[in-house]
């Protein structure tokens, strides 16, 4: 009904966090804070952008599915389920279960990706001159 709203909201929050991290990294770079070892690591802002892209892309295609099924309209309140209290309660329940589960799974997969990239970074750092 509106499960895609939860990951879409998370995407907006992550986009803001990625922007803020990018500004901080830029400042650190300009202040000469970046060292050789820092350059070997993937910046946090880039990692956050992976999550943002997954959440935004997924939410966009899911929103399209809801338009397909006639659950989203171009006029207020935009969600057909928001028209009456019974449907609204069902919609909120779906957002709390399916929507939250979607956001959690995408974030968990991103977390696993971070573990893998961290392991690759550590392995590269251990190898002399970063060559395997």
């Amino acid at each position: 009904m509106a499960c895609f709203v939860v990951p879409a909201v998370e995407a907006i929050v992550i986009a803001a966090a990625a922007k803020s991290a990018q500004v901080k990294e830029e400042k650190a770079r300009l202040n000469g804070g970046e060292t050789f070892t820092v350059r070997e690591k993937i910046p946090l802002s880039r990692k956050l952008k992976w999550l943002r892209n997954m959440l935004l892309g997924g939410s966009a295609l899911l929103a399209f599915e809801h338009v397909w099924h006639g659950e989203i309209t171009a006029w207020f309140p935009f969600l057909t389920a928001a028209g009456n209290p019974a449907d609204t309660a069902e919609m909120l329940h779906e957002m709390a279960t399916v929507g939250v589960a979607m956001a959690v799974l995408v974030t968990a997969v991103w977390g696993c990706m971070l573990l893998v990239t961290d392991a690759i970074e550590k392995r590269t750092a251990k190898t002399p001159s970063g060559v395997n």
Binding site: M54, L55, L56, G58, S59, L61, V106
Partner: peptide
């Protein structure tokens, strides 16, 4: 990113 995000959500 788009397709994996959508795939996870549809899963």
């Amino acid at each position: 990113w788009i397709y994996w995000g959508a795939s996870l959500m549809w899963f």
